[in-house]
């Protein structure tokens, strides 16, 4: 699976997609291992990238390692293609790999994301690459790497439920709203990255390959296509996703994740889709009734 590196796409004297081939091979080996053991965090020798740690270096390295000149890339941050960091990462790959980019989810073969899963269902020929800040779901219960690795190895996940139990005892419901832990293929407990729990159900049996890169923490993990991903819960307090009382003010969707936009300093606010591509597609498809109501 070595990519042919010719003159195409090389700019500024950098190798295709910035990383040298040796590094890409190392990352691909980690990715293959991650796919073979769904949900398991594979340590890899994360490289220093020309953007800061914590700003998507893990996702960027994974994308760089899997990208071919035939790919079409989409980059989103918080669901939007036009947020500054998404723009910056997209430009990086335009410059170093010269691959075509798109904002349309359906047109992309590789989608790098921070904190969201696109609303549009992904296909088998697509790869979703997540940027991950803290890959260890047990980190805030147990700070030590040596201990958390042992807990994963032995499937000692009782502590995870202790936290959920505490939530219910205190609030009457599970109070985790994003980075909501999941069990992958009934084996490893995994952090889905700080996506809202609204997106968790999309991970289950997704036709697309899901790859997760944590650059600063030097971990890669994966959910292969059509793999069971279950959000942790209790039988009598099943997992549920957020719901909004009003539809998107721009496209009228009632089944998407909404961002709140503050309109003035007197409490005026409106809600609209965080996935800008899905929202625009819907707006173009037709102007919904809700939109007219909201606009007045």
């Amino acid at each position: 699976m070595t990519s042919t590196v010719g003159d195409n796409g090389q700019t500024d004297g950098y190798n295709f997609a910035y990383l040298n081939e040796q590094t890409k091979r190392m990352i691909r080996r980690a990715i293959l291992k991650a796919i073979a053991i769904p949900g398991y965090q594979v340590p890899f020798a994360s490289r220093e990238m020309p953007m800061p740690y914590g700003w998507g270096t893990g996702g960027v390295q994974v994308t760089a390692a899997i990208l071919t000149p035939e790919d079409t890339l989409k980059v989103i941050d918080q669901g939007a293609d036009d947020t500054t960091n998404a723009v910056s990462i997209r430009k990086f790959f335009t410059k170093t790999a010269n691959v075509p980019t798109t904002t349309h989810t359906g047109d992309a073969s590789v989608i790098q994301t921070r904190h969201r899963i696109p609303e549009q269902e992904l296909r088998e020929d697509q790869v979703l690459v997540y940027q991950v800040p803290i890959p260890e779901p047990l980190r805030f219960l147990e700070p030590r790497e040596t201990e958390t690795r042992k807990m994963h190895a032995l499937s000692e996940y009782g502590l995870m439920h202790v936290k959920l139990y505490e939530d219910i005892a205190r609030h009457g419901h599970i109070a985790t709203t994003y980075a909501y832990p999941v069990s992958v293929s009934d084996r490893y407990v995994m952090d889905p990255s700080p996506t809202p729990k609204f997106d968790n159900p999309k991970m289950d049996s997704m036709p697309a390959l899901q790859l997760f890169g944590a650059g600063r923490e030097k971990r890669i993990y994966a959910v292969p296509p059509y793999t069971k991903v279950k959000s942790l819960d209790f039988e009598d307090h099943p997992f549920e996703v957020q719901r909004w009382s009003e539809p998107c003010a721009l496209c009228g969707a009632r089944d998407t994740f909404l961002d709140e936009v503050i309109l003035d300093d007197e409490g005026g606010r409106m809600f609209c889709c965080s996935d800008t591509d899905a929202c625009e597609a819907r707006q173009q498809a037709g102007s919904p009734d809700d939109l007219l109501d909201q606009a007045s």
Binding site: E156, Y157, G158, L159, H161, V162, K163, Y165, E166, I168, A169, R170, D233, F234, E235, D236, H237
Partner: peptide, 27 residues
């Protein structure tokens, strides 16, 4: 003991560790 979680969670931890997933029963 885990001093930072409730008495109920302290008692329930071992049950959850062996796979008990019913909040009402654990409580």
């Amino acid at each position: 003991l885990r001093m930072n979680v409730s008495a109920g969670a302290n008692i329930g931890e071992r049950l959850m560790a062996i796979g008990d997933r019913h909040y009402g029963n654990i409580r």
